[in-house]
Amino acid sequence: METEKYNNTPQEPTISLTVNGQMHTLKVEPWVSLLDALRDHLQLTGTKKGCDHGQCGACTVLVDGKRINACMTLAIMRDGAEITTVEGLSQGQDLHPLQQAFIDHDAFQCGYCTPGQLCSAIGLMQEGKAKTLAEVQDLMSGNICRCAAYSNINAAICEVMGIENRGGSL
């Protein structure tokens, strides 16, 4: 029976991921999310698992330059992709301007959402769609901060993007 065959066939394919410029070859079962592959297989635990359902944004990474929720895609679907995680943002000890802005604006308290906020904001900057604080707020709504550091997060993003940090609507 076909169904049984599928259920009983062990399958652990080999995939390659280029993470923060370094190529990795790894064996992952087909059901492993990109998030679990990064955290458990590559020990890159900077990317956080919040809800694991695409709702909180803590797992946001850049895949081929675009921000996505790493929990809502399978590693096997990203075979060959280029991935940037929070570990890849700084140049050695030199922080990314956005990381420095987060420090300057006190844009985190517990810090759990921060890696996702940073990667998401970098995706936002690359997309180039946000021109106002209200647009930053709307386009960052996929990243939840339970400490509610939103106003400081927005201030940091606006500073780096050269957007006036006034007149938000959300």
Binding site: R67, I68, N69, M72, T73, G123
Partner: peptide, 9 residues
């Protein structure tokens, strides 16, 4: 609809 991250996927 959804968030920027979800719309990217």
């Amino acid at each position: 609809a959804a968030s920027a991250q979800l719309r990217n996927m």
